[in-house]
Design a protein around this nucleic acid. Structure first.
Length: 491
RNA sequence: GCCUCAGUAGCUCAAUGGUAGAGCAGUGGCCUCUUAAGCCAUUGGUUGUAGGUUCGAGUCCUUCCUGGGGUACCA
């Protein structure tokens, strides 16, 4: 509960609220005519009349005249208010203003003796009285004081983080711009944005533990989707040729620096194309996003990443050779096992070939893929929805994963459209599940029937949007990229 | 899930096991060019929670809660 100190502050503000009403003023206004934002106030506007609105961030009261700063979406601006300019009544209202209140000001732009662009107020309107105080951050010479250091505070009360920390706001503005850029890119290429069920009777399309829920009227359990893949492909079967869905997926797994239980995923599918086409397309999309942010290269966690060069494409055996020095036949289990042991990886000889390869990739290769790199042609066992290689090498698939700065950003493939093969792959997954693999997914008969009806050759891609945002705002923490991250409730 | 660190006023931080303190914010006063405004005065604490050790616990031990950092699963 609130303790005395906070209660005292709130009581004082409630008292002021009462006094404002006694002056015949409604402290929660209905509208305000904003003619300018703080960032638009320049020397060119000196002597011009302007109306601005925003939140009071600092106050310097000096008896019969005062300075204060307001913050709007674009930044901050100082205003000057003097009793002789606004009149006794309006100045008395101003005296009841606190840090955190929203106000509207009408006035004229001028420069103070210290050359600060300032609004000389002719009339002040209170727009919203703040009852609960915001942390008062002080700033001098770019140095900030009393900044809230508690990360938990910033995550639980993101609105305060946004008020206090301009760079937090900048990061989320970037996030939402990135998402808009991606939408425009896909729309401009003839894609249709679609919606598919969040509540799914059978989960699939990825290897992950799902959230489970229950529909009362149907008396049936549903899963929150872990991926949109199986529904989007049914739309391809239905005759849509280019579709995408940009939305939340849910995975009931651990929370850490780079994982949140709900996260934003983009999946898109294009009929009559293959993974080679999609690698070009994804590359173009990434370059467009980076360009729209006004960048040619980006720095992330101390690395400089260049988006001007063509993304390289390498198979797993090429990459393993490059990063470990071992030239191995990745279809030979005992060779791969031997290399795993020599690299001191924690594996057992019972592990499948695909697991062993994956282990080498994850430990020794992927963290070193700093510049944009497509890893291509994954083992069929870990790619149950991808077509096998057209060159006849049926143990490997036409699949790619895009790595940048050691993180995976995209996963795509030539979609498996052979219904007989697809059923067999599902049965293998289902057997793994029966053997206790919690993340293998169950057989989805609806999906198989759709494929049996006939799906055109198609390529599809999934892109983790939160990761992309992390890359572009240069953070290692997904909580800096997700505006309301999942937290445990306080008891 | 495991390991580890942390939690003191609205915010930032102090306090050898020995009376819980400061700055900012708040409140009252003075102040018509201030900008971490200034000057004077002043309010505000069950030290995350529940126990224990001790003459005495913010400090040592244990439980629980929440979070941070690792790590596992994973995107």
């Amino acid at each position: 509960m609130e303790n005395k100190s906070l209660k005292q502050i709130i009581d004082n503000r409630l008292e002021k609220l009462k006094k404002i009403r006694e002056l015949g003023v409604e402290p929660y206004a209905y509208d305000f005519n904003q003619t300018h934002h703080s960032s638009q106030i320049t020397e060119d506007l000196i002597d011009s009349k302007v109306n601005l609105a925003g939140r009071i961030m600092s106050l310097r009261k000096m008896g019969k005249a005062s300075f204060a700063n307001i913050q709007d979406q674009k930044g901050r601006i100082q205003f000057y208010i003097a009793r002789d300019d606004v009149g006794e009544e309006n100045y008395n209202l101003f005296k009841l203003i606190d840090i955190g209140d929203y106000v509207g000001i009408e006035g004229v732009v001028f420069k103070t003796k210290t050359d600060a662009l300032t609004i000389k107020v002719s009339s002040l309107t209170i727009l919203s009285k703040s009852i609960k105080p915001i942390p008062d951050v002080k700033e001098k010479d770019g140095e900030k004081y009393n900044l809230v250091s508690d990360k938990e505070f910033r995550y639980r009360k993101r609105y305060l983080d946004l008020i206090i920390n301009p760079e937090t706001k900048d990061n989320y503005i970037k996030r939402f711009k990135i998402i808009n850029t991606i939408r425009s890119f896909l729309n401009n290429h003839g894609y249709l944005e679609v919606e598919t069920p969040v509540l799914q009777p059978i989960y699939g399309g990825a290897n992950a533990k799902p959230f489970t829920t229950h529909h009362n009227a149907l008396d049936q359990d549903f899963y929150l989707r872990i991926a949109t893949e199986l529904y989007l492909k049914q739309l391809i079967v239905g005759g849509f040729e280019k579709v995408y869905e940009l939305s939340k997926d849910f995975r009931n797994e651990g929370i850490d620096r780079s994982h949140n239980p709900e996260f934003t995923m983009l999946e898109f599918y294009q009929a009559y194309s293959d993974y080679n086409f999609m690698m070009d397309f994804v590359e173009e999309m990434f370059k467009k996003v980076v360009e729209d942010l006004g960048l040619k290269q980006i720095s992330w966690d101390g690395n400089t990443i260049n988006f001007e060069e063509k993304f390289s494409r390498k198979t797993m055996d090429e990459l393993i050779k490059e990063h470990t020095g071992y030239k191995i036949d990745i279809s030979n289990h005992s060779d791969v096992l031997k290399v795993c042991n020599e690299l001191e990886l924690e594996v057992s000889k019972k592990d499948s070939l695909a697991t062993l390869i994956d282990e080498i990739m994850r430990r020794k290769v992927e963290p070193n893929l700093i510049q944009p790199t497509y890893v291509i042609n994954h083992p069929v066992e870990i790619s149950p929805l991808a077509k096998v290689n057209r060159n006849g090498d049926i143990n490997f698939t036409e699949r790619f994963e895009l790595f940048i700065a050691g993180m995976e950003f995209a996963n795509g493939f030539s979609e498996l459209n052979d219904p007989i093969d697809q059923r067999k792959r599902f049965e293998d997954q289902s057997n793994k599940k029966d053997d206790g693999d919690e993340e293998a997914f169950p057989i989805d008969e609806n999906f198989l029937e759709a494929i049996e009806t006939g799906m055109p050759p198609t390529a599809g891609v999934g892109i983790g949007i939160d990761r992309l945002v992390m890359l572009l705002i240069d953070t290692r923490w997904i909580r800096d990229a997700i505006i309301f991250p999942t937290l445990k409730s306080l008891k």
